[in-house]
Design a protein around this nucleic acid. Structure first.
Lengths: 223, 223
DNA sequence: GAATATTTGTCCGTATGTATA
DNA sequence: CTATACATACGGACAAATATT
């Protein structure tokens, strides 16, 4: 079943990592070398490289070589985007995932956030209140992103970056068509998130995150 | 930057889907045909196919053709597995993600779960109490999986399946080396999850899920 | 800075194994 | 069973980008 030729390369690379012979940022042997070493064609090696590139574990640089990297977000963004296109999943399902992850990110952020990060959050919230719509959208995005970063969980950050990529347009559309009341309620939920952050009140903060996503869910259901 | 030849194929397929000319389960034009149509080599087309296969959006069947599918889990499992191998992320970070998603899955399950599913959960919990260790591990896995399925969120189900794939061995190791007290506490958290499910008490259930993951976190931190 | 070697990117032609009518 | 269509894989060639001398 899964006995494609190019799998040999992936197993080879995996093994080299396990043995500690190569690690992040290192260069792999040249395509030709690997092809000869593993007794296979260069084309098959290239299929393996493409696979690994799309897993986010390597980067090919023409004229230079193939280097081990660690970028998850593109894989997630592209895959989830495709599943949406193929109608395999729905926007409301993705919204649930965002709610799930941001709630946990909040809990982690409460523990890890620095004073300067909190100051930045305050500043963002302040400009959200007064700013024009485009500026508001930007600050809204930054506010959430800052929370995610403060979680210090690389996996969570990657997935949220991927989801962000998918949703920028959608969020912009929503905010530009939202009622004043809805925008006010969103603002209040942000305020609660920050307030609870200051008081290190995890559960109140989590509730605020959930409120935030309930507002969005309500809007999507109506649309 | 992203101007590789094979991207043409992906754009072409995306467009065919958007135009409604092909959809899930449909067969793509043959490699040769696409290569000629898009004026490129078969090798480059194959790299694109490999990319799309690893995005979970198609399946290549030798002698038959390339078919559009929608399987997310393999991509996630392989990518996350690789990031762990490359030490780009840690096990505790993955554990946080599982906690996040399972908490939300629980909330969704409370709304969607059927009576027969609840009966099955009861049965699983019952055999978990008395069973031998191997049977217990199996039932534990089934219990959580059943909850996830009841969420009826395909994206959440896919990601959890991927994480499950990565963690089967690790969970087995943990449970086989856990103290009786820890196993008892895990059992109690399961019991709370089910109890709250019966009473449709979402927040108590979420707390139980969190307790469950706190126990696991404690074990990992100690290990 | 220029010449040269290395490496990835892309192409073509061909042979083989597999599925399908 | 045969013929056709198709994916899989190989080897050789040249172009383009980069690294090295």
């Amino acid at each position: 079943m899964e006995d494609r030729e190019y799998r040999k390369v992936i197993e080879y690379v995996k093994n080299e990592i396990k043995q500690g012979r190569i690690q992040l940022e290192d260069k792999l042997p040249a395509e030709r070398i690997m092809a000869e070493e593993l007794d296979m064609s260069r084309g098959s090696v290239r299929e393996a490289l493409r696979t690994m590139e799309n897993m986010g574990m390597l980067e090919s640089r023409q004229g230079s070589g193939n280097y081990l990297t660690g970028n998850l977000n593109k894989v997630f963004a592209e895959s989830i985007g495709m599943m949406l296109l193929l109608k395999r999943i729905s926007h409301s399902e993705v919204n649930s995932l965002r709610r799930a992850i941001e709630t946990e990110a909040y809990a982690l952020a409460v523990q890890n956030i620095s004073d300067s990060q909190i100051e930045q959050l305050k500043a963002m919230l302040k400009s959200m209140r007064t700013a024009e719509i485009d500026e508001m959208i930007l600050k809204d995005k930054e506010f959430h992103y800052q929370m995610i970063i403060a979680s210090e969980n690389h996996l969570i950050i990657s997935i949220m970056e991927a989801l962000e990529e998918i949703y920028t347009d959608s969020v912009e559309y929503m905010l530009k068509n939202a009622s004043e009341e809805m925008k006010h309620r969103l603002f209040l939920s942000h305020e609660k998130m920050l307030d609870s952050m200051l008081r290190k009140d995890e559960s109140a903060g989590k509730r605020a995150v959930n409120e935030h996503y309930d507002i969005i869910k309500f809007w999507y259901d109506k649309e």
